[in-house]
Amino acid sequence: MEEVEVAAKKRDEERVASAHAYFDNIHTKRKLLSLVNFILLAAGSLLILSPIWWMISTSLKSMAEVMTYPPTFYPREWNWDNYIKTWKAAPFDTYAINTITITMLVVIGSVLVNSFIAYGFAKVPFKGRGILFAIVLSTMMIPGFVTLIPQYVLFSKLQWINTYFPLVVPAFFGSAFFIFLLRQFYMTIPNELIEAAKIEGASHFRIWWTIGLPLTKPALATVAIFSFNGAWNDFLGPLLYLNDESLYTLQLGLQVFKGEMNTQWNYLMAGSLLVLLPVIILFFFFQKYFIQGINLQSGGK
């Protein structure tokens, strides 16, 4: 009798112990995996960041140091005046003002107009809405160059070459990608909200302005950032449409600067960094909205 009890107790203990072993095992395994993962990710980050460090480091070196072999990882002396020299070597202030002007206009146009269009596609029922929206989506498939050449013809016939019109005006007529993005966001706003406002006496335009715009702020921030990035980094448009150096943007200016500097890497890197800086700053402050744009994209498929 007693023997049986002892045996049963022993079995129980063993079972408990092996269960502990199982979970202990899992914990160690998990910790180990997490460590390996961490090391992998840390090494990867160094790899990813090294070009940016290289850009900063080169931009501070003297030309003699840039040319030494093997290259140095840290600048021996920090030539901060490389930046001043770079800025003065070309009319960068003009480029910057031009770029800011164009970018601001594009951002304002993109945010307002695309929000307006997207509201229509999301919240106002009308005949042919589905088909028209399908056309919006399908235009995303058209390679840009197919329309680029005839657009150039159109703008040149309008005497718009060497003006900012070709770079800014299209932003006020909606972009398929932004319409899609904002419509996705509008779809998450319950229709009852719109209906309640209708019953309270608001017209659709009023609803868009007083309810649509404030409620889609996060998505509008995403559109603002994406369109900022697009306009700021646009190289092809200015290259095609701008001839006068006084109209050049930073991207175009940098390209000219590259031709003039040949392989003066320290100045070239300083220039590149200055042009990239606003985007980097924007990214660190508004990362959330970059990610939101991506989430809307992936949710849409």
């Binding site: 269009i117 029922p125 009308f126 329309t147 299209p170 006020f172 007529f173 017209s203 659709h204």
Partner: peptide, 23 residues
Amino acid sequence: EGLQGYVFILPWIVGFIAFTAGP
């Protein structure tokens, strides 16, 4: 209401004709 809908998407329609379909 349907007409209002077309007003909302009018910018896109104009842009589509001028910058995509026409070209």
